[in-house]
């Protein structure tokens, strides 16, 4: 690899003379973006970190006091617990569900365009469009409740009980299955077909092939899809907000609700400490995912 790099450098040099010019050109291309990213994200985030260890006005140093306040805050604990519980339930479901359909659609060998479209359509549906539909499906006098009457004998209210979180899970699965499926199909396409041919010569059946060839080869993809699914799971706030408003049923109360309410109260101390905590948690997840890929290779 290094040899190759050296070689291509050498080739470039007679056109290029020096790499200083190359580096300067590179900087020129990214400069507008970098300036904006710095102004709108990096510098203010540094300020947030500073404010998270100071008093409201950002002058007096208070150590970790703001962090302790946030971590002891009941609403924060409720919202974190809900968010984590939601992720633990919905992400494995989504990964399995989308892998299943990815494998099936891949096995149809390109004659599956219409199915892909159907699975991807929910991605294009703005949340504001489906609020009434969701109410029709999940209200105590709605569709699923009627289904429950015919199976269990009594109606179920999904909107205003602990079951509210399942409304979010169904929304999430409905919306993201297509996205993850496309990623799985990309991963599946990367597995050389010679592996399968060799396996069937050895007499391995479909299930054996799936567990001994498909799954191990999708390992790198799994972590990427996992991360993207986590990111998309934060967006379920959109459904929660449009269905339940600022204060939905407690089982639907997510971190974003809490942040919005702190924001309305302009509670900068809590907001800053909270933002740093969320950033650290997300970064930890990303580092975990990068290491896992390298470990898996």
């Amino acid at each position: 690899m290094k040899m190759l790099l050296k070689k291509s450098r050498k080739n470039q040099n007679y056109i290029y003379r020096n790499s200083k010019k190359e580096s300067l050109t590179g900087w020129m291309f990214i400069l507008p973006s970098l300036a904006g990213v710095s102004i709108f994200y990096l510098i203010p985030f540094a300020d947030v970190v500073r404010r998270s260890v100071t008093e409201g006005m950002g002058v007096r140093f208070v150590g970790l006091r703001n962090y302790i306040t946030v971590l002891e805050n009941e609403a924060f604990l409720l919202a974190s617990a809900n968010t984590i519980k939601f992720m633990l339930l919905c992400i494995p479901l989504l990964l399995i569900f989308s892998l299943l359909f990815g494998v099936i659609i891949k096995s149809l060998n390109g004659k599956a365009g219409i199915y892909k479209t159907a699975f991807l359509v929910p991605l294009a549906v703005p949340v504001a469009s489906i609020v009434l539909m969701w109410r029709f499906l999940f209200h105590e006098n709605g569709f699923f409740s009627m289904l429950a009457v015919s199976i269990l004998g009594n109606p179920i209210d999904f909107m205003n009980t602990d079951l509210a979180v399942y409304v979010l899970i169904i929304s999430y699965l409905w919306k993201n299955t297509g996205y993850d499926m496309i990623l799985w199909i990309a991963g599946l396409s990367g597995i050389p077909s010679s592996l399968y041919e060799a396996a069937s010569v050895d007499g391995a059946g479909r299930f054996k092939q799936f567990f001994y060839i498909t799954l191990p080869n999708l390992r790198g993809m799994l972590f990427i899809i996992f991360i993207l699914s986590v990111i998309n799971s934060f967006k379920v706030f959109r459904e929660a907000y449009l269905i339940g408003g600022n204060y939905p049923h407690t089982s639907m109360y997510m971190l974003q609700h809490l942040f919005n309410n702190w924001f309305v109260a302009l509670d900068i101390e809590k907001l800053c400490a909270g933002a740093v905590i969320i950033s650290i948690a997300t970064s930890a997840l990303i580092i975990f995912f990068r290491n896992s890929i390298q470990g898996g290779k």
């Binding site: 102004i39 203010p44 300020d47 942040f259 924001f263 907001l271 933002a275 740093v276 969320i278 997300t282």
Partner: peptide, 14 residues
């Protein structure tokens, strides 16, 4: 990869 929650305050400040 950062969720909106972690950039919300920085956005507000700037």
């Amino acid at each position: 990869l950062m969720p909106f929650q972690s950039t919300m305050v920085s956005n507000y400040i700037v």
